[in-house]
Simulated assay, not measured.
Amino acid sequence: MRETTLSAHEAAEAEGQPRLNRRQAAKIRTRQKVLDAARALFAERGYDAATIRDIAKGAGMSTGAVFANFQDKAELFECVFAEEMGGLLQDIQTAAGHEGRVAERLAEGLTAGYHRSLEHLPLMQAMIARSWFQPEAADERSRTFVKPIIEAIIAVLQAGIREGELRQDLDQLVMGRMIWDVFVANFRYAAYDHWGIEELTPHIRKQLDLILSSQLARQ
């Protein structure tokens, strides 16, 4: 279930910004309404089958109102992607935010990510597919949305280094990216082999054990 979003006024105040006037607040609400409708449709149909017309219908407004807030479907999808990566980051950090072995913490964090994303697998499939077929500028923006998740993974690795579980010379960036890539690659099993959380959980745990086994400080 998605978290309740703050009102436009509350969001502005939380960030230390001045209160918005009615017109500004209405524009933000309209934009979020379009985003919510787009997210639901992308999650149901994927990217290609979702149309601006259907997104506008889902938001209860005209296509003109959609285009007044977003340039095209690609920009809409990018905004949905950014929101999804933000939610995924929160889930992973919360589940991995305890003391314990690195592999266990990462497994719990990534499993929480699977719990979130399996609820709308077509959306994740669309995100993965479009990551291969988008302009370079769009790819760079997408990487900025993923970067905090990789940094969260690296933070767990750093804790393992400090506690003497992992080697001091571990290449943190390479390892963090590798773990993220493995996490994403497993969605193929969910999409084509119909794996659920029961299959993905032990699979990612075995993968993490194998990935980290050569980096243990005591062998």
Rank of each mutant, 00 (worst) to 15 (best):
C79S: 06
A74G: 08
I28V: 15
R29L: 11
E84Y: 05
A82K: 07
L89E: 15
K57T: 03
A26Y: 09
E78T: 09
G64E: 09
A43V: 01
A59I: 05
Y47C: 03
G86I: 01
F42E: 01
K27C: 05
R29Y: 00
L35Q: 07
Q32E: 12
G86P: 09
I52H: 12
A40W: 03
E78K: 07
E83N: 10
N69R: 12
V80G: 05
I52C: 08
D36Q: 13
A59L: 01
A37C: 01
G60E: 10
A74N: 13
T51Y: 00
Q32C: 03
V80N: 06
A26T: 14
G60S: 04
A43S: 14
M61Q: 07
C79K: 14
I52A: 12
A82S: 13
E83H: 08
A43T: 01
V66H: 04
L89V: 03
N69D: 12
A74E: 13
A74M: 08
R39I: 01
K57F: 10
D48H: 12
F81N: 06
T51K: 05
K33H: 05
G86M: 04
A68V: 10
L76I: 08
I28T: 10
L76A: 11
G60W: 15
A50L: 01
G87H: 13
A56N: 09
L41R: 14
T51W: 00
R39G: 04
F81Y: 11
A26D: 13
T63I: 04
K27R: 15
D54L: 06
I55S: 06
D72F: 08
G46Q: 11
R53S: 06
E84P: 09
M61E: 07
R31E: 10
N69E: 13
C79F: 03
F67I: 03
A68P: 00
A65F: 02
F81W: 11
I28S: 14
I28D: 13
A65I: 04
R29M: 03
Q32P: 02
A74C: 07
C79Q: 15
G64D: 12
A43C: 07
A37V: 03
A38D: 08
E84K: 02
R29T: 07
V34Q: 03
L35R: 05
A43E: 13
G86A: 08
A49Y: 07
F42G: 00
V34T: 05
L89S: 06
D54E: 15
F42D: 01
C79A: 06
T63M: 02
E84L: 02
M85F: 15
F81Q: 11
E83S: 10
Q71W: 00
L88P: 11
T63K: 12
E84S: 14
A26G: 11
R53Y: 08
F77Y: 12
V34C: 05
A49W: 05
A49Q: 15
Q32Y: 00
A68R: 10
L88K: 06
E78Y: 02
I55A: 05
G60L: 09
K57W: 11
K57D: 04
E44F: 05
A49P: 14
L89P: 09
A40I: 02
K57N: 04
A50M: 03
G58C: 05
D36K: 08
V80T: 06
A68K: 10
